[in-house]
Computed example of a mutant assay.
Amino acid sequence: MSELTKKHTFVICAYKESPFLEECIISLKKQRLKSNIIMVTSTPNSYISSLADKYQILLKVNTGESGIVQDWNFGYNQCNTPYVTIAHQDDIYFEEYSLHAVTCLERCKKPLIYFSDYCEIRNGKKVVNNQLLRIKRILLLPLRINLLQRSRFIRRRSLALGNGICCPAVTFAVNNLPNPVFTVNFRSDEDWEAWERISKLKGCFLYDSSIQMGHRIHEESETSIILGDNARSKEDYEMFCKFWPKWMAKIIVKFYSKSEKSNKVN
C-alpha cells in the first residue's frame, strides 16, 4: 500500500474564495489510500493560503496566463507522480476514489485515463439519478466491458453522442499522454475535446462504474454560468462535427442541449 501512495497526486485548482474548498480538501485527506495533495491558484488570496496552511498543503501560484484550462495545465505540470487527478474545488471525493483509481491503473498494461461514475451534490444532498446522469451512463455502457476499454472504435463511438466522462472524476496516466493534456480552444467543452484527442491513442479508457466522487451543482459554478449564457451549444456543435457530418451534428446538438438543462439550478 505504501508504494501506491507515491504514485498518485491530487492537485486542487482553487479559484477566488469558494465556500466549498475546505470540504473538498477534507475529502482528499480522508482517502483510504493516502495520496500526495498540492494546491494551485491564479487568484492568490488569504482565504486560499490559510486553508493550505491549515491542512499543510503545498500551494503554488500560476503567474502566467490564467483561465480554467491554463490552471488545469499548470496544476498538472506541478505533479511528479505517474497518476494525477485534477480536483475541482467545489467537488468531493469519496474515501475509496484514489484506491480504486491507482489499483485500476496499476493493473493495466497501458492506461490512458481512469474515470469513475459520479453523483451530483445539490443543496448539500447527493443526487445519484436524474436525466443527465442516466444519459451519461448509457453513453459509457460499452466501456463497462474490460476488453472494450482498449478499443479506439468503441470509446470514440461512446464520445460521439456526448461527453459522458465527468472531468473531476478522471485520473490521468501521465507517462502515456501528450502534454499539455488540455488545449485552450473551448470554454465549456475543454474536457470533451481532450477525451476526443486521447481516444485516438493506443491504450485503455478505464471506466469504473461505481460512484466514487460527487460533482457539485450550484448557481456560481462554471457549468451553470456557461449554460446560463448559452455558450455551450456552439462548442457542442464543434465537438459533434469531429465525429459526424455537419448536417447530422446539427440534429444531435438539439437533443443534447435538452439533456444539459438538468445541470441548471432550479
Results as ranks from 00 to 15, higher is better:
residue 132 L to V: 10
residue 134 R to A: 07
residue 134 R to F: 02
residue 136 K to Y: 00
residue 136 K to N: 15
residue 136 K to D: 12
residue 136 K to R: 15
residue 138 I to N: 04
residue 139 L to I: 07
residue 140 L to T: 10
residue 140 L to V: 07
residue 140 L to Y: 09
residue 140 L to C: 10
residue 140 L to N: 06
residue 141 L to P: 08
residue 141 L to R: 06
residue 142 P to V: 01
residue 143 L to W: 05
residue 143 L to V: 12
residue 144 R to P: 12
residue 144 R to S: 15
residue 146 N to W: 00
residue 146 N to A: 04
residue 146 N to K: 03
residue 146 N to F: 02
residue 147 L to H: 00
residue 148 L to Q: 06
residue 148 L to I: 01
residue 149 Q to Y: 05
residue 149 Q to E: 03
residue 150 R to I: 11
residue 151 S to E: 04
residue 152 R to F: 06
residue 153 F to W: 13
residue 154 I to V: 06
residue 154 I to D: 00
residue 154 I to G: 08
residue 155 R to P: 08
residue 156 R to Q: 13
residue 157 R to K: 14
residue 159 L to Q: 00
residue 159 L to I: 01
residue 159 L to W: 06
residue 160 A to Q: 10
residue 160 A to K: 05
residue 161 L to I: 11
residue 161 L to W: 10
residue 162 G to R: 08
residue 163 N to I: 10
residue 163 N to A: 03
residue 166 C to N: 15
residue 166 C to W: 11
residue 168 P to W: 02
residue 168 P to C: 03
residue 168 P to T: 10
residue 169 A to Q: 07
residue 169 A to Y: 05
residue 169 A to L: 06
residue 170 V to F: 09
residue 172 F to G: 02
residue 172 F to R: 09
residue 172 F to W: 00
residue 173 A to K: 01
residue 173 A to L: 02
residue 173 A to S: 11
residue 173 A to E: 00
residue 174 V to P: 12
residue 174 V to F: 07
residue 175 N to I: 09
residue 175 N to Q: 11
residue 176 N to C: 11
residue 178 P to T: 07
residue 178 P to F: 05
residue 179 N to V: 13
residue 180 P to S: 00
residue 180 P to W: 02
residue 181 V to I: 15
residue 182 F to I: 11
residue 182 F to M: 08
residue 186 F to K: 14
residue 187 R to M: 13
residue 188 S to A: 10
residue 188 S to W: 04
residue 188 S to P: 14
residue 189 D to A: 14
residue 190 E to N: 07
residue 190 E to F: 09
residue 190 E to P: 13
residue 192 W to T: 15
residue 193 E to A: 15
residue 194 A to K: 03
residue 194 A to G: 06
residue 194 A to F: 04
residue 195 W to K: 13
residue 196 E to I: 14
residue 198 I to G: 12
residue 198 I to P: 15
residue 198 I to D: 10
residue 198 I to F: 03
residue 199 S to Q: 01
residue 199 S to V: 07
residue 200 K to W: 08
residue 200 K to I: 01
residue 200 K to Y: 11
residue 201 L to V: 01
residue 202 K to W: 00
residue 203 G to H: 03
residue 204 C to L: 04
residue 204 C to K: 05
residue 205 F to I: 12
residue 207 Y to G: 15
residue 208 D to K: 08
residue 208 D to T: 04
residue 209 S to I: 01
residue 209 S to L: 05
residue 210 S to H: 09
residue 212 Q to N: 15
residue 213 M to L: 10
